[in-house]
């Protein structure tokens, strides 16, 4: 274990980056999921088709391809734009943090789209009729009835999406984000102990996954505190 001495703080900062990617991609993932679900549930044929294509494309493509495409693709795009203004510029890239964060939130967002869509459809029609009978506007119904009922339905699969997100952060090391897997690679070149170094990475991710699982269980309990279990 003494080979790890001196690397703990690197791992710690790597884990901080994992947490940062997770939080940023979680917010984006919810946004993409809600937009996708909104489009699928809308009356617009065009919006339905676009959202349908979105879910088919990103659920059928390997995550690593999306990350590589977004990172290298955006670099080429930005470089060619920058060269219009200043031909001296050789290379501009999007920071791996953002390229990776956006990539994994687009991917997991396509799964969240289906989850949110199902959850909105799962809202009890009786509740919505009751809201209308009470004279609530569409917006009020949405905020006070649909959202509170919907998130309870969506939570269990959403917890799995969060686990996918945290595990997908490991893939961002491929485009050079200095998270835990990247730290491990550096540590291996110095110490020559790959097993030890990668096991630490695995343990860090297991810790993150456990925290997420426990948090989802706690939120589920909180969400169901007022519902009477019919079973």
């Amino acid at each position: 274990m003494e080979v790890l001495t001196g690397w703990w703080d690197d791992y710690f900062w790597g884990a901080v980056i994992v947490a940062k990617v997770f939080i940023a991609s979680l917010s984006l993932m919810i946004l993409f999921g809600l937009i996708g679900a909104g489009a699928k549930l809308s009356n617009s044929r065009v919006a339905q088709k676009i959202a349908g294509a979105y879910t088919v494309i990103f659920r059928g493509t390997p995550e690593i391809l999306v990350i590589l495409l977004l990172y290298f693709g955006s670099a080429i795009l930005l470089t060619s734009i920058a060269q219009i203004f200043n031909p001296e510029i050789k290379f501009v890239d999007v920071p791996p943090f953002w390229a990776g964060t956006i990539a994994i939130s687009i991917i997991v967002g396509s799964y969240a789209t289906e989850t949110f869509r199902g959850a909105f459809l799962g809202v009890n029609p009786g509740s919505i009729e009751a809201a209308r009978a009470l004279g609530m506007s569409t917006l009020q119904t949405f905020i006070y009835i649909r959202i509170p009922e919907m998130w309870r339905i969506a939570l269990p699969p959403f917890g799995n999406h969060m686990l996918s997100l945290i595990k997908d952060t490991a893939l961002i090391s491929i485009i050079g984000l200095n998270e835990t897997l990247f730290v491990a690679k550096q540590a291996i070149t110095v110490t020559g102990k790959p097993f030890t170094m990668y096991i630490v990475v695995g343990a860090i991710y297991l810790g993150f996954s456990s925290v997420i699982t426990l948090a989802v269980m706690a939120i589920e309990k909180f969400g169901n505190r007022t519902t009477i279990d019919a079973k």
């Binding site: 595990k167 490991a170 102990k193 790959p194 097993f195 990668y198 297991l206 456990s210």
Partner: peptide, 23 residues
Amino acid sequence: IYVFRGTPILVQIFIIYYGLPQF
């Protein structure tokens, strides 16, 4: 199941490919 579902597949691949020959 807990360990293999809680860690990224990429880390598992690296542990097996790069890690195991350490022994």
